[in-house]
């Protein structure tokens, strides 16, 4: 190899390395510093005790966050997948344009605006109070466009040949959809749902206006019952005086990050399966 080529090669690798560090360093430093600050609070009491002034427990917040995620999965999942199917398979003309338009507006709306609107309508106007249902609806509105988009894309990626094969055999359109298209698109749809959950895990703004907080464990009651959740602990405890509060906030942050990593890894695995399946079909 000539000197010039070796030099170019070396420079290229250095540039790549620097770029990698620039991307990786912030996340690594956040992880390290959060972990470092959380150390005093780490222990089983996080799971066995609830949040209150004396202990560094997070049991109620962990349960609340999981319940919220479950609610988002049900509400945003069903509405979003249904809308995605409608857009990909049935919508035409004006309805399609209208639905797409509103979906885009929702996607661009700041989460704090969504929270505020949910507060004005659901919490105040409907007299729901800070409640599970208001929180789930606000979070769902936030991730809905994402689920709609991934569902639509996953269905559109199913080869036309499969639709034609179903039609050519005289199969009703719904049968082709449920038996052929949806199973084929399922990995794509699922990975979209998982990413939506990952986004929900880190959200605070819409919940501040809708969920409230309690030091007791959450009840599965839809209205008039406040819901504790992890990101609220981060937000509140970080601004409290005292190292114990700060350690608790860091521990809540660490648990949120852990949940995020689990969700993202799961999403990756499902997406990889989807790619393999599509590759096989377009032989």
């Amino acid at each position: 190899m000539s000197l010039k080529r070796r030099l170019t090669d070396r420079i290229f690798w250095v540039v790549c390395g620097v770029a990698f560090l620039l991307i990786a360093a912030p996340s690594i430093s956040v992880l390290v510093s959060v972990f470092h600050q959380a150390v005093p609070a780490l222990g089983w009491q996080l799971f066995s005790h609830r949040t209150n002034a004396k202990a560094t427990g997070l049991q109620n917040a962990i349960l609340g966050s999981l319940i919220l995620l479950g609610g988002v999965l049900v509400v945003a999942g069903s509405v979003g997948v249904a809308a995605g199917i409608y857009l990909a398979e049935y919508a035409t003309g004006r309805t399609e344009k209208l639905l797409r338009f509103f979906s885009e507006i929702l996607a661009g709306m700041p989460s704090i605006v969504i929270g505020y609107i949910a507060y004005l309508t659901l919490v105040v106007q409907f007299h729901w109070g800070y409640s599970l249902l208001a929180a789930v609806i606000a979070l769902s509105a936030l991730v809905l466009p994402y689920i709609v988009k991934t569902t639509e894309v996953a269905l559109r990626q199913v080869p036309t040949a499969i639709r034609e094969a179903g039609a050519g055999l005289g199969m009703p359109r719904t049968a082709t959809l449920t038996r052929m298209l949806l199973p084929t698109a399922l990995p794509g749809i699922v990975s979209g749902l998982i990413v939506a959950l990952a986004i929900s895990t880190g959200e605070l703004a819409p919940l501040l206006f809708t969920a409230g907080f309690t030091d007791t464990n959450p009840k599965l009651q839809l209205l008039h019952q406040q819901v504790p959740y992890l990101t609220n602990v981060i937000y509140t405890d970080i601004s409290l005086p005292g190292s114990r509060a700060h350690a608790t906030a860091a521990a809540a942050g660490l648990l949120s990050l852990l949940l995020l990593v689990i969700l993202i890894t799961a999403g990756r695995l499902v997406a990889r399966r989807a790619r393999r399946q599509t590759a096989r079909m377009s032989l």
């Binding site: 499969i162 034609e164 179903g166 050519g168 199969m171 009703p172 038996r179 052929m180 399946q277």
Partner: peptide
């Protein structure tokens, strides 16, 4: 009409299913 007039396409387009299901699915659904 399409049940009485079947169609075979330019590129083989089996369903992403088993060999058995490929043949059985339309009669079952229909």
């Amino acid at each position: 009409i399409r049940r009485r007039i079947g169609m075979v396409f330019q590129k083989p387009n089996p369903f992403p299913k088993s060999i058995y299901d490929n043949v059985a699915i339309a009669p079952k659904v229909n």
